[in-house]
Write a protein that binds this DNA or RNA. Sequence first.
RNA 1: GGGCCCGUAGCUCAGCCAGGAUAGAGCGCCGGCCUUCUAAGCCGGCGGUCCGGGGUUCAAAUCCCCGCGGGCCCGCCA
Length: 646
Amino acid sequence: MVIVELVSEPFRYIAESVRRDLSKELSIPENDLKIEIPPRYELGDIAIPLHAVSKKLGSSPEHIYDTIKDKLLRNKYIESVSLSSGYLDIWINTQELSKITFHAIEELKDLYGVVRTNNPKRYVVEYVSANPVHPLHIGSGRNAALGIAISSMLKLRGHEVITRFYINDMGRQVAIMVLGFMLLGMPDPPEGVKEDHWIGYIYASTNTIIEIIQLKKKLEKLKEEDPEEYREKLKILDELIADASRLSSKFPSVFDTLVQKLSKIEDPEAEISKLMISYEKASDPQVVKAFRKAVDLCIAGFKKTLETLGAHFDYWDYESDLAWEGVVEQVIQAARSSRYFSYYKGAPALVFDEILKERGIREELRLPKTLEIPPLILMRSDETTLYTVRDIGYSVKKFSETGADYVINIIASEQTLPQAQLRLALYALGFKREASNLIHYSYEMVMLPGQRMSGRRGRYVTLDEVIDMTINKSSEILSGRGVKASEDIAKVIAVSAIKYALASVSPSKQIVFRVEEVLNLERNSAPYIMYTYARASSILNKAESIPPLNEVDFKAGAEGRRRQLLIEISRAPTELTKAIDELKTEDIASMLNRISDLFNSWYQEDQVIRDPDPGARAYKLHLVRGVRQVLAKGLMALGIKPLERI
RNA sequence: GGGCCCGUAGCUCAGCCAGGAUAGAGCGCCGGCCUUCUAAGCCGGCGGUCCGGGGUUCAAAUCCCCGCGGGCCCGCCA
C-alpha cells in the first residue's frame, strides 16, 4: 500500500517544499524566492529566478547554484536541478508526484481540481439584466456567458451564489416600446414569432418612425437656415429610411399602422414622458397593464433563450416594484438629508468632491485613479427618478434581502461612470460596507464587423440566431460522422461552444463578433475540449475498472507526454483555484485548451488499454482519470456540462 | 477638450498587473496520417519592426513618459 499525505494541490505542495529548503539553505525569506513555471517543458517543472537573489546575496547565480545543488537533491521530491540563464531549474521526481497526485484524485474524487474555500461567502451575481425592449443580442450573450461562468466558479469554490436579473422596465426605451405597443392594441406575437423578437420589432419600428418624423420636421427648418447641416441631416435621414424599409418589409401592415398612428401624434416626446410618469406613479391601471404585458412578453422570450444557455436566476426583480414599494423614495429622502446633498445645474444632486478627497477612498471603492466623477442628479424636473438612483435602492436590497457579503454586477464597461457613482452614493448614504463590497465586473462591447449594434434601429445579431446556426453546424458534424444526431447533444455542444467563445477572451478586450468563429468547433473550442473529455471517458469505460494504486508502476510516467500530463494534472487545482479567486474565466479556458492539446497528442502516440505491462497500464489509467477529472472541473467552472459521449 | 479600455503572425487571441531563458495558441494556407482506446483528432511546414519614439534597468511585449490608431464614457438616457 502506498502511504502518502493527502494534498489537494500536489504540484504546489512540492514546489513549496522545494522553496522552503532553498530558503533555509540560503537564509533568505521564502517570499524572496519566486516560483515560476518555465516557458517550455524542456526547461524543467519549476524555475526559481536567481537574478534578484544573487544581487541580494552579492554572489553570482553560478556560485549560489554550486552551494545549494547537492543539498536540494536530498529533497525526495526533486529529481534533478540545473542552472540556465540565471534560473534554477528543477525537475520534480515524478514517482513521488504521481503518488501524491493519484492518491489525491482517488481520495477526493469529484472534488479534485478546485480547492474548497474554508471561508465561504455569500455572493449575489447580477447579470444579463438586458432592457426588455428587444431580443437578447450577442452582447447580452457575452454578459450571460461571463455570468454563468462566474456563478459556476464561485459555487465550485464553495461559496454561496444567488443570481438576479434586474428587469429595467422604467427606462425611456421601454416607454417608447409601450407607446407603439398600445397604439397597436397590445397585440400578442403572430404565430411562430418569439415574444422578445416581436417586442423588439415593435420597439425598433416605433423608435425609427418617431425619429423620422422628428427629423423631417427639423429638416424643414434647416433647409433655409443652414444648408450645410441640412445636407448632413439628410444623410441620417437616408439611413433611417433604410432601416425603416427593412423593418417595414417584415410586417408591412403592422408597420403601416404604426406610421399612421404615430403621424397623428402631435408631440411624441410628451407622449412618452406621460407614459413614464404614469407608470412610475402607477396612476393609470391601463398603462400599468400595458407596460407589464409588453415587458412580460419580452421577458418570456428572454427566459427561453437563457434556459437554453443554462443561465438560471433565483430572482427576477422589476425595477418598477422597487419604485412602487417606496424604496426609491427612501433613497431620495436619505440623499436629501445627507451632508453631500446639494444642487447641481439647478437639480437636486449628491456631490462627491468631498468624499473623493478622503485618503484611500479610490482604492477602497475601486474607483479609477483619475476618473472625474460628476455629481449624481437625483431626479428629473418632472420628478421621475433616474436609473442610477433607482440602482442605489436596488443595491441595498441585493445586500440586505439575502444577507450578501459581496454583490457582483456584470455590466458593460460603458457604465463605468454610473457604477462608480453608485458606489460613491452608497458610501455617501452610509452604506460603506456595501460600497466596498460592490464589484463592477466590467467587460468591453461586442461589435459587429464594421458597425455597432443598435437595438433602437433593430440592428443586431440575436443570440437566438447564433444558437440556431451553431446547433445546425453541430448536427451536421454529428451526422457527418455517422453518429445518430441526437438533437439534445447537438444543442449542448452548440451552447457550450458559444459560451466558451465568449468567456475565453479577456473581458477588457472588445470582441468583434464573427459568426464563423463561433461556428468553428475545432481546436480551442468547447466542442474540442468536450471531445477530449469524452475520449478520456471512453477509455475509462472500456477499461471497466481503475486498478488500485498498489498495482501502479509509478516509474511509468518518467518521461515524455505522460510526464507532462502528470505535471498539468497536479498543477490544475492551483491554477483553477487562482483563476476563480481572480474571476478570470479566460485563464480557465486556456488551461483546458492546453491540457486537451497535450492529451490528444499523447492519445495518438501511446495506447492505454492495450498496454501489455499491467503496471504501466494502471499508471496510464490513473493519468487518464486525472485528465478527465480536471477537464470536467474546468468545464464546469465555465458552466459547461461535459458529455460522456459525443 | 477630459477620462477609461484596447493595439502582439494575413485574421482572432494568450503572455503585460507581480520585468528576466529561442514571444505562444487557434483560424487560414501548404504537405502527410483513419483494418489501431471517438479523425470535432494527430504529425510536419510557412508566417512576428510585440503600434511608433524616448526613458528606467544588468535585463522591457511587460514598468514610466510622449505620440499614433480603434472603441467607449463625460445626459434631468440606460
